[in-house]
């Protein structure tokens, strides 16, 4: 059995995780009020409508705030410091993530810097992280 903190999809969240596998940030949108929201859910947290769908988000985001964990969670497989971040998607929702593919320093991680979604291996699955938008992938 995988480590207890390796995410386990549910039927309701499976499209998000399938998106991670495909390299696409797939989140929910309410067809009644138009809100984009996260985490995935069969009900819109803004208006209570269940007329909701998944859509492919732009992957564009900005860095709202962060910490730099000195001893990262071992499943990331590296010793060095690692960011934990609040990321604001261009579509509105805030989510918890990490900023990767850049120095894990206060100098390299500037608040409000533009980010884009990237998908990285975590144990045996692929998970959502973000990288600086100017970074060549």
């Amino acid at each position: 059995m995988p480590h207890p903190l390796v995410p386990v999809p549910t039927p309701e969240t499976q499209p998000f995780w399938d998106g991670c596998q495909e390299g696409i940030l797939r989140i929910n949108k309410c067809l009644t009020c138009g809100s984009a929201y996260f985490p995935p859910s069969p009900i819109c947290p803004e208006c209570s409508s269940t007329d909701v769908e998944y859509f492919d988000a732009s992957g564009d985001a900005t860095l709202y705030s962060y910490t730099i964990q000195q001893k990262p969670f071992f499943l990331w497989g590296s010793e060095g410091p690692r960011s934990v971040a609040l990321v604001k998607l261009a579509e509105g929702p805030m989510l918890t993530s990490s900023i990767v593919n850049c120095e894990q320093t206060p100098e390299a991680l500037q608040l409000d810097m533009p980010l884009r979604a990237t998908f990285v291996p975590f144990d045996e699955i692929t998970v959502l992280c973000f990288e600086p938008a100017e970074q060549q992938s």
Partner: peptide, 12 residues
């Protein structure tokens, strides 16, 4: 929390 939050920090 297990799916969307804890993996990034191990829940720290």
């Amino acid at each position: 929390g297990q799916q969307f939050d804890m993996l990034y920090s191990g829940g720290q």
